[in-house]
């Protein structure tokens, strides 16, 4: 455990744990509303923020937070008003964000593509004390939203139309989800990098789904996977001198594969338990639509 003696590793590990908690905590809502790639889009937009941070000699983390929050709000507005052309507008936003990032960082006196690379793929040694402070503040916000509003966010992500009829402020909650996702991207940026952020939002959730039956269990398992792989990846990258972001993502994929292999026997066991509990007395299960005829389609 000699790595704990180094201040940079302490900072990196703290950042890693916070990323491991926040990324799946937001990601689960994105997956639930089938916007798994939203994190990826925000990651592209955040590049402009990093570039601007270098150009204006501001903190790239805070600048990236600002720009990606604006980008996420814009994405949500496009989703409301964009209708059919929405996906094209989103594509332009993503590529504009990426191109802007590369442009600004090369215009900056202190910036180079090497700087950008550490933001794109993550880097442990460059996590500074001020980065850690920013990450702690942002992560606290993410945890507060994703846990404190879990029932509301669940309802809105599950069925937006129904959520509206329960009187929930659907648009506000959608915007809040987008903003929280943007904040998470910047939390994770230093550790896993902007291009791999989305993997940590989505893959732990997908892995947890293999063995969980409830939303609550999926949430807990996904966060547990997130924390395990971020710590594991950070420590591995210290000993083996491999990039942390890539290591973390590959570990996450490994967890997904392992849990998928586990899922099949688990499902069989559950099915057997179910059958034993039901007996053969549940006709409700097997006589669905087939009996409908063409004439049934018409009321009058």
């Amino acid at each position: 455990m000699d790595f704990l003696d180094y201040a940079f590793m302490q900072r990196a590990l703290l950042a890693a744990v916070l990323v491991g908690i926040t990324a799946p905590a937001v990601g689960i809502y994105l997956v639930q509303r089938r916007q798994a790639l939203m994190g990826d889009g925000i990651g592209h937009v955040a590049m402009t923020g990093v570039g601007l941070g270098f150009l204006l000699t501001w903190s790239p983390v805070w600048m990236a937070t600002l720009v990606s929050v604006l980008g996420a709000v814009l994405m949500e507005l496009i989703r409301w008003y964009g209708k059919t052309r929405g996906d094209i507008a989103l594509a332009m936003l993503f590529y504009g964000g990426m191109a802007g990032g590369v442009m600004f960082i090369n215009l900056a006196p202190t910036g180079s593509n090497a700087n950008l690379t550490s933001y794109l793929f993550g880097s442990l040694s460059t996590v500074s004390q001020s980065d850690v402070t920013a990450i702690c503040v942002l992560a606290a916000f993410v945890v507060l939203v994703t846990l404190g509003l879990r029932r509301q966010l669940f309802a809105v992500s599950q069925d937006e139309e129904f959520a509206r009829v329960t009187g929930l402020p659907v648009r506000v909650l959608n915007l809040l989800t987008a903003v929280t996702a943007a904040v998470t991207v910047t939390v994770a940026m230093r550790v896993v990098g902007l291009l791999l952020v989305s993997a940590l939002m989505v893959v732990p959730v997908a892995a947890a789904q293999q063995i969980a039956r409830s939303f609550a269990a999926t949430f807990v398992i996904a966060v547990a996977i997130g924390v395990s792989v971020t710590i594991g990846g950070t420590v591995t990258s210290y000993y083996q001198d491999v990039p942390p972001g890539a290591t973390i993502v590959l570990l996450t994929l490994g967890a997904f594969i392992a849990l998928t292999a586990l899922a099949a026997p688990l499902a069989r066991r559950r099915a057997r338990a179910r059958a034993a509990a039901d007996g053969a007395t549940d006709p409700g299960d097997c006589t669905i639509p087939g009996s409908r005829r063409a004439a049934d389609e018409v009321g009058v």
């Binding site: 639930q32 509303r33 029932r151 129904f162 009187g167 409830s214």
Partner: peptide
């Protein structure tokens, strides 16, 4: 939804 949810979890959102 794209994430598993139990019967209770879904019905509970009707109580919000």
């Amino acid at each position: 939804g794209g994430v598993p949810a139990t019967v209770t979890e879904v019905v509970s959102s009707g109580r919000l």
